[in-house]
Design a protein around this nucleic acid. Structure first.
Lengths: 187, 187
DNA sequence: GATTCCCTATCTACTGATAGGTAGATATAT
DNA sequence: ATATATCTACCTATCAGTAGATAGGGAATC
């Protein structure tokens, strides 16, 4: 029997929800046990029952985010490379426009030099797994340099989120990423 | 007589040096008066003499960074668009590779939702001025959509810094941005 | 030449708020 | 009875910021 997923209690997942939102607004130092507890109506000590340390909470945050993010992408054998890329761009657009939040791992990636090791490691895993997914797409499309194309795609999307949020002009994200799928496949 | 630049004392500029390095490693919440003071051998209260609040220090940080960054770029009338773009990419590469630091405004841009207003405003100015500079380059090159090209360029460079640092593979920055100048001008 | 005054820059000593984390009591449900 | 989940009450460390003393250097005044 393979490794069993622990089901994650109602409270634990509400803690993660609030922490994720705070982290995606201001980074690893922008969420605190106190603030999370206040928002969901418990005491900060109770959070330690679910996540013993901030490091553990941060790790759980990135793990859940990564699994959800990649899980939301469709199966590669059921779409053309162009469709897959369009879906990938749409995943970022949704995070930015609908939730008005930064990508958690774009945020943590910027702060990586000051992150606890386990959190930094999980953040790297997010990018590794995304690179693999994208490289598969570009390889299927017959791209000459799938690794570079994959990196360019992630870089442009993460950067476009930062730029659009900084300029307080969410439509700038659209203008900067509109031709990404077609252009990347043309290279 | 136009507005005079105040010369910025030796101590004040050392404070900015240390704060900038810390901010570029971990963001706005990763530098503290105490840590800065300890590193340059004064007491934290003395920093308040030079910068009354953290907000003021943050603002000075972004202002100096922006002026230096744009000041280091050559004059647009003395270079071809391709040369200008290569120089622009090199400016980011230097910050990442030689200093092993994130772009200050890429960092603050990610955190912008939790930044004090004056710091957020200065961060936006950085991107505004960079967009203007790049749009000029792309317009000189006869690009069809200079605004989109300029945004793409910044996005890819900021994102590539995050990606390379997250993967702890600085050469990934090179691979992801190597063809940026030529490719952007081809669009 | 000495004295007074002011400006610069630093210090000591402190405040109140907030941080993550811990010990141990308590309540509930199986 | 035990496991789950929360609580109260506390700890130590750190945070930005303030008040007020101190020291040194000019420059003006006597």
């Amino acid at each position: 029997m393979p490794k069993t997923e622990k089901p994650l209690s109602e409270t634990a997942s509400r803690i993660l929800d609030v922490a994720e939102r705070m982290a995606r607004q201001g980074g690893y130092y922008a969420f605190s046990f106190r603030d999370i507890a206040a928002e969901i109506g418990i005491k900060s000590a109770s959070i330690h029952y679910h996540f013993p340390t901030k490091e553990a909470l941060g790790e759980a945050l990135v793990t859940r985010y990564t699994d959800r993010f990649l899980g939301a992408l469709g199966r590669l054998d059921e779409a053309t490379p162009l469709e897959s890329l369009e879906q990938y761009v749409a995943a970022y657009r949704q995070a930015l426009i609908e939730q008005d939040l930064m990508c958690l791992c774009g945020m943590f990636g910027a702060e990586i030099a000051r992150l606890p090791d386990p959190v930094a490691r999980r953040t790297r895993e997010f990018f590794e797994r995304n690179l693999v997914w994208l490289e598969t797409v570009f390889r299927a499309a017959g791209a000459a340099n799938p690794e570079a194309r994959a990196g360019e795609t992630i870089a442009r999307l993460e950067g476009a989120m930062i730029l659009a949020r900084s300029m307080n002009d969410m439509d700038l994200f659209q203008r900067v990423t509109a031709d990404l799928p077609a252009q990347a496949l043309r290279e």
